[in-house]
Each structure stands twice: as C-alpha cells, then as structure tokens.
Design a protein around this nucleic acid. Structure first.
Lengths: 260, 260
DNA sequence: AAGTGGTCTAGACCACGAA
DNA sequence: TCGTGGTCTAGACCACTTA
C-alpha cells in the first residue's frame, strides 16, 4: 500500500491563515496547542473538568492522533493540563500555572508588579573584573570586561544596586547607549540581537554595609538579598549580574518540580 | 494491507530485561533515553560532538524513528543535547546540565554537599496555624494542622530552624514517628506514600531576632535567609514549610530558562 | 465491556545545512 | 544534491478506569 495522501502542509497552511494571522506555516500541532491553550486561559474549558478525548480532538482539528498528542504534551509540560490514563485529560487552574523560573530582569519583574522603574548613576567602564567573575564565565582573567553599574529605583525610591559584567565583543559601543539601559536584557535583545535563553542564579543574603546603606537610604545593618546570576545565550555564558536588593521590599519566587 | 506484525511489547520486554535489571516493562523510549543519557554522562559521547543520526539510532536499538525521537526529546528537554536541523544532534556539557529546581529538602541538599545532618528539639503538635498558612493551603481556618518544629544541625552546628505545617489527615500517627523525622519529605514518601511533585518557594531575608540568635548561636543582627515553601502532591497543596537558615552558610541556586 | 490515555510501528514529505 | 532533523499520517495493541 503506497500512501497516496494530500499534502498535509498545504492543509495546515490554509487552516492557519484563517485562524491566526501568520504568513508562514506553523506546525499543525502548534496550531492545536494555541487553540487549546487559549480556550483554557479564557476558561472555555474550566478548571477541573475534562478536555475532549484525543479521538474527538482528532476529528475537531482533522489531524492525526500523534499531532493531537504532541499539542497535549506541550500543554502538560507547561502545567495547563494533566492526562490520566483510563480517565481523561484534566484541565488545571490556568491562573496558578507556573510562569516562574523565566529569565526576567529586575526591571521587568518590578514593572509587572506595577512599579515605575528607573536607573540612576549609570556607569559603564571597561576593566578587569574580580577573578571569580572570570571563572564563572570560563575565561582567562587577562581581558577587560564591560562593567555596568546602576542604582535602581522603584517609584523614585532606591531599592537595589546592580553590577553587570559582559563580554565586550558582544556589546560594541554600549557606552554610547548609557541612557537606554533600563532593562539591560531588553537592550541586549533589541540592540545586539542576543537571545538570552537561560541563567543560573545563586541567592544569598548579607547585611548592608555603610556604603550600601547610604546609597539605598536604609539603616546600617539592614538585610539585603543578593543574587549572582550567570546568563547564557546559545549555551555559552555571556555575562554575570550581581544585584543587592532591600530584602523587605522584594521576595524571590521559585517553582520547583519533580523529586530527585 | 492489514498490519501483521510481531507484538512490539514482547520484544521490548525482552531487550529491557537483558539491558537493565527491571522486572516490569519500561517503555522502549525510556530504555533508549537511559542508555543515551548514561553514555553522555560517562562522556562516551563527548561534549560538542554529534550523536549518531536518528536513522542510525533506529538500527542500533531496533526501534522506530518516533521512539528514538521521543527519547531524544526527553534528553533535549533536560539539556543534555540540542538538535540542529540539517546538521545533527549536538551533545552539550553534561556537567553544566541543570539538576536544579527539583524539590529537595534541606537535609537532602546538605547531605549532598557532604554534611552530617541531624535534627534536635523536634516538636510535633496539632494546633491552629497562622491565618496566612490556611490561605496558602486554600483551607478554612478552623481546623487544626500538624506543626513540626525542628532545629537543624550540620556537623553538630545549628544552621536552621524549620517549621512545617501539614494536613493532619495525610499523616496519621506522625507524632509517633518523631525520631524518624530527619528528612521530612523522605518520611512522607516512604511512610505515607505521598508523592511530592512540585513546590512554590518564596525567598526573602531577615535579621535574626534574639530568640533565633540564641537558638542558632549567632550574634543578634545576623542575616538569615528565609524560605516559605508550599508543597504540592497531585496538584493539591499538602503543606507549608518555613525555614530560616544562617545566610553565610547557605546559598540558594535556581535555574532559569526561557524569556517571557 | 467499553472507553480513555500510553506506547509503538512503517512510511511519507518538508526545510535546512553543507558539500 | 544529499543527508540531517522536523512534521505528519494511519493503524495497531496495551494498561488503566469506570460501570
């Protein structure tokens, strides 16, 4: 039996163009994923209830079971649904679906919370960094790095001090963009086409020293939450961020999944 | 053409039994996944080089392409490999592969780092918890909860105070297991068959008060890292953990992936 | 017994990268 | 052009849940 069949990609293109306004063809499973995700987020499918069965979804979308299952698997990975053998596919609460553990900048996080965010005292220099920075980046310690220093404000109150070390070859001419640096990650993405894809962050806490206390206008001895973050693009470390933030104004959230 | 074919599951069982010592059948893709993962971790496939192509892996394992791809997809999701269309599948550095963001107890983390861990002053009570605990658990605030209080020691030095609130119906008779509570998560899994699958943790930092300072044998005013963790099993919150740990002895690591 | 999701196969065409 | 991974189909059997 030789498989004479219509080209599925033409079909998918056609359906896609009327569903979503995208000129190029997206994978079919992605279309299914998007539609189902929207319905869950709009609560057309309600929390706790069952999604249509896989054979039903096949008919609805006119695709094969594998394609349906690929879409469902994506939704399950992102915590929207949970398949139960012999029973069905349960819709979980989209509001509690985790959007944590994304690489977000301090600026982005604070804006999300409704603050008006700005940076002052921005300093950009080329210099030798502390040695541990080089080991984090897997570099020899004889080259200059770009150092970006900022004092961060939320609603005109100082809340954090941030120092970023970046590989100079990735951000040529960054010193001329001093006034554009509010969200550094956004700058890297838009001006330098650097796609940040992951980061490892280590969180600790320290007591504010006299300098920090003065800059942040807090009593000496106040507790600071400090984070050291190594940022990766295409599986290579491209920079280290060090942020010290006033602890009672900020809480760091993490989503943990799975047991060892 | 009706598909007469040998039952693939019998084959898979047979192969599995000689490969891995497991009495029941694991999925075929899981076997492929395990073998490839081991080879990557043992550096039989070296970092930066290409994995055998998908057709080659099909032949090696005697399975279909879909099965190979499912195994590869799992490895890719966990950061072991990265597929590149038209080129091949690159092996990434297994040492930097993230094993972070799993739900691990303080005990487990410290043992991993080589410490000798113990708990003292263990107290187990049934009582009304602070109201925010009930809202975290999505409960009415009129029922008693189990409260487990412990002072945690690493190499006989006090390093943390932990308070856990648990739903009483899940842990009947826990007060008789007082001396078994070192890793609470381990106890839940082994004695009560509770499978913890996720948690949301909020991290902040505070200054040690007089009581904490005395218990942890540190100067008053020292910085503590505090974590409030809501633990989930089968998508239901089952407990809240509150841990305050001496900040200069502990660092909290997080893996962040993807951009909003 | 019937219906659900879980696993698996064989075979096809497409899009991208390198030669 | 050729080989790689990316997408897709049709059809099969298994394991679990519910009735």
């Amino acid at each position: 039996m030789n498989a004479t069949k219509p080209n599925p990609h033409n079909i998918s293109n056609y359906i896609l163009k009327e569903g979503i306004n995208i000129s190029k063809s997206l994978p079919l499973y992605y279309k299914v994923y998007n539609i189902l995700r929207n319905k869950i987020e709009e609560e057309e499918y309600e929390k706790g209830e069952l999604l249509p069965t896989e054979p039903e979804l096949q008919k609805q979308f006119g695709v094969s079971r594998v394609t349906v299952r690929k879409a469902l698997e994506m939704l399950a990975n992102e915590g929207f649904i949970m398949a139960k053998q012999g029973k069905g596919t349960v819709v979980l609460d989209p509001k509690t679906t985790q959007k944590l553990n994304l690489v977000t900048s301090l600026t982005e996080t604070l804006i999300e919370k409704g603050y008006d965010v700005s940076s002052k005292n921005v300093q950009i220099e080329y210099l030798k960094a502390p040695s541990y920075i080089y080991s984090e980046l897997g570099l020899e310690s004889n080259i200059d790095l770009v150092r970006v220093y900022r004092i961060r404000y939320a609603n005109d109150n100082p809340i954090a001090i941030t120092i970023n070390y970046l590989l100079p070859e990735l951000v040529p001419g960054i010193e001329q963009k001093k006034n554009k640096i509010n969200s550094l990650y956004h700058l890297l993405e838009t001006e330098y086409c650097i796609k940040i894809d992951s980061a490892i962050e280590k969180i600790s806490s320290v007591i504010a020293g006299v300098t920090e206390a003065e800059i942040l206008q807090i009593p000496y001895g106040t507790s600071l939450l400090t984070s050291k973050r190594v940022v990766y693009s295409e599986n290579r470390p491209i920079g280290v961020d060090i942020t010290s933030i006033i602890a009672n104004k900020y809480e760091y959230s993490v989503y943990l999944k799975g047991r060892p």
